[in-house]
Design a protein around this nucleic acid. Structure first.
Length: 107
DNA sequence: AATTTGACCAGTA
DNA sequence: CTACTGGCCAAAT
């Protein structure tokens, strides 16, 4: 069974709830959306988002604290710029998850 | 139709 | 730090 409509809506809702200046991993989003071990499905959804989406897709990164695009690629630069504009700092290629990881609490 | 790829991840060595 | 394993599964080859 793959992702039904309600599952996708939950994913979108989770991503939309990530506050500016914080990040969440694909796996974390999947888990919060009650889709354990479906990290890839979340990544797939991000890749399929419409161009002008209002979803803060840039706040979703991989579990290593890195952007899941090849360094210096178009997508990498776009995502990194948005994150830094929100105050997320990089140490080299990495984000310190101890500081910037979203705790996952929904207000 | 079969195989590989991909905005992934955690465990182990 | 790298390398490999198994989980995951739709989409692209």
């Amino acid at each position: 069974m793959a992702l039904d409509e309600t599952s996708r809506q939950r994913v979108w809702q989770i991503v939309a709830a990530i506050p500016a200046g914080k990040v969440a991993s694909y796996g974390q989003v999947a888990e919060l959306a009650e889709l354990p071990r479906q990290a890839r499905a979340v990544g797939r959804m991000m890749s399929q988002l419409p161009k002008g989406t209002k979803l803060p897709w840039h706040r979703v990164i991989n579990a290593q604290g890195r952007i899941s695009f090849p360094i210096d690629s178009d997508g990498y630069n776009r995502q990194r710029e948005r994150l830094e504009a929100e105050g997320v700092e990089f140490t080299g290629e990495r984000i310190n998850l101890k500081i910037y990881r979203w705790d996952g609490c929904i207000s």
